[in-house]
Amino acid sequence: MVNEPRPFRPRISARLAYTLHAGLAPNPFYRRLAAFVEGRPRLARWFTSGERAVKERLFGCRMCGQCALPVTGYACPMTCPKQLRNGPCGGVSADGSCEVDRSLRCVWVTAAERAGSAGRGGDLDLLQRPADNREWSRSSWLNYWQGRDEGLTTALGDG
């Protein structure tokens, strides 16, 4: 497969990523901006390309359209060969390498380390619900600002 996922090591620190994220937090302005952009196909394509360029470079983004980065220490789970969104598989080698490619570090080992060092280890306990495969190649920022990602991540109760 041309587009086979492989673990990616983020190019910026977790601390910087959390800080940058604060600038993306949804607000009424972003919500209106997202609606405006989505209403104009050419502008939406341009916007989505921009998002792709930035996130591909920084996080190995594959444009699943339903970004999990804020709850995985900004290590992208869609770069896991099994695209696991809820934590590492049992095949991680003793040295932390991926079972599919031993020359690469398991992205969930990276995620646990980054989230932990930022005091966000609890994020990994959240349930990531099954992703909507129709969102591939769409902008996750527009989805996020429009509130469509709500419910994608939920706390698991005892009930």
Binding site: G90, G91, S93, A94, A112, E113
Partner: peptide, 8 residues
């Protein structure tokens, strides 16, 4: 239980 990240 033995695979990294073992603490998690």
């Amino acid at each position: 239980p033995f695979a990294p990240p073992t603490a998690a």
